[in-house]
């Protein structure tokens, strides 16, 4: 099985750094960035399988970013990261094509499970 390429997007830099390290330690290829705009630029530069995307960011928020991502990379699987207070936004995101959502703070096993599931989904869709 090839390595899952994950893009982690959250405006909290330290969150991206540490979660990135933990997912790397679990065998993923991880790149991190801190805004929706930067995420779009990275997605246009090279392929990713799964995007972990925070819904609440300054500037382009997660929902706007999700819309744009689905335009440029329809096959990439987006998992929304959301706090309890923005759960409605996460549910709306599912309607807009997000593969899944995770409530922050999340257990690493749950993050891994959802990322792997999303990756499987992408492979099936790619055929």
């Amino acid at each position: 099985m090839r390595v899952i390429r994950l893009l982690l997007v959250d405006d909290e830099e330290r969150f991206v750094e540490t979660l990135g390290k933990r997912l790397t330690a679990r065998g993923l290829y991880v790149e991190g960035t801190h805004s929706g705009e930067a995420a779009l630029a990275l997605l246009q530069a090279r392929p990713f399988d799964v995007v972990l995307l925070d819904v609440r960011m300054p500037g382009m928020d997660g929902i706007q970013a999700l819309r744009e991502i689905k335009k440029v990379q329809p096959l990439v699987q987006v998992i929304l990261l959301s706090g309890n207070a923005s759960i409605n936004t996460a549910v709306e995101g599912m309607r807009l094509g997000a593969a899944d959502y995770l409530l922050k703070p999340a257990e690493i096993e749950e993050v891994m499970a959802k990322v792997e599931e999303a990756f499987e989904k992408k492979r099936l869709e790619e055929g």
């Binding site: 969150f15 540490t18 933990r22 309890n84 207070a85 703070p105 999340a106």
Partner: peptide
């Protein structure tokens, strides 16, 4: 309070990752 709960989530999420790491 809902805005504060929201704000608290960010440090909580970071602490969760740090402790996990």
């Amino acid at each position: 309070s809902s805005s504060i709960a929201h704000d608290l989530n960010n440090p909580l999420a970071i602490m969760n990752e740090e402790a996990g790491w």
